[in-house]
């Protein structure tokens, strides 16, 4: 119930952090909010020999809003996003999403970037950022490059990040005409979502991005004509969700999760259709 010994590094800049991770190689691990990594270290499921603590890297935090896009520093905490008045105006889906994550005492430490890189299948951020066509800025020894959020998560707890790279910033385009909502089902507020859906509706189409189904976020797209009345929408969503790869667990089997996925998809749709 206590972590094994590790070498603790506290870089002040992204460049330093990247260098320390590169030197540590496969034995290194970046620490963001620690709300998933530290439990794993306490149980010794994770045993990094070198821990690179990003919490002192000031350039990794912060929220920027301009005309057509929002930028989140990867180390921005969920609670900061939930409380941000600027985001509540500019992209309310982000603030609403952050408020769904964990409990207050988790949100005050957990970070948006840490959640994306951890890539838990029940996490909200990978799905929301996929739905919003966000881009993730990764920095490594070779410099910076961007990856679309929808291509970043490869599987449960597996992403496209290199072991000497860190996620620094998240770039999210604002589409003021798109209507968005997120809905999920969890046993208690703050528990892991058993199934959830993000909806983005534009004049041409409506897209649902699902999370909590066991794998990477999955998107289902229907044209605006397909999404006219709820009865036919429910039939179509049921068919499309039936084709998704879904993994059951002790909290609910695959078939049950598919049913819940359709329920949350419809709940989210009602918000954007209203």
């Amino acid at each position: 119930m206590k972590p094994v010994r590790f070498k603790y590094q506290a870089p002040a800049t992204v460049a330093e952090a990247v260098q320390q991770l590169a030197e540590a190689g496969i034995d290194g691990k970046a620490l963001a909010g620690g709300q998933s990594l530290v439990p794993m270290m306490n149980f010794r499921l994770a045993r990094p020999a070198v821990l690179v603590d990003l919490n002192g890297v000031a350039e990794l935090s912060g929220i920027t809003v301009d005309g057509d896009h929002v930028e989140l520093g990867a180390l921005t905490r969920h609670q900061t996003i939930a409380d941000s008045e600027r985001l509540q105006h500019a992209l309310p889906l982000l603030a609403r999403t952050a408020g769904l994550i964990g409990h207050w005492g988790i949100r005050t430490r957990g970070t948006v970037g840490g959640s994306v890189v951890h890539a838990d299948p029940s996490a909200e951020w990978p799905a929301v950022l996929t739905a919003l066509s966000a881009e993730l800025e990764l920095v490594g020894p070779q410099g910076a490059h961007r990856v679309p959020a929808g291509e970043f998560v490869l599987g449960p707890l597996t992403t496209a990040i290199g072991m000497d790279e860190i996620l620094t910033r998240i770039h999210i385009p604002r589409v003021p005409t798109a209507r968005t909502a997120i809905e999920e089902v969890a046993r208690r507020p703050g528990d892991f979502a058993l199934a959830g859906a993000v909806v983005v509706a534009s004049t041409e189409d409506t897209r649902w991005t699902f999370f909590g189904l066991g794998g990477p976020p999955e998107t289902v797209r229907l044209s605006a004509d397909d999404a006219r009345d709820e009865a036919s929408l429910k039939r179509q969503l049921t068919d499309r969700v039936a084709a998704l790869e879904v993994t059951g667990d002790m909290h609910g089997g695959a078939e049950w999760r598919r049913q819940v996925a359709v329920v949350v998809a419809l709940r989210a749709w009602r918000q954007v259709a209203a």
């Binding site: 603790y8 530290v38 306490n42 005492g105 430490r109």
Partner: peptide, 18 residues
Amino acid sequence: TVLLDGEPVRSCLMFAVQ
């Protein structure tokens, strides 16, 4: 739970050095 700068945190999920 302890308060870190006035906000609740899990003290088992932080290292003291932090």
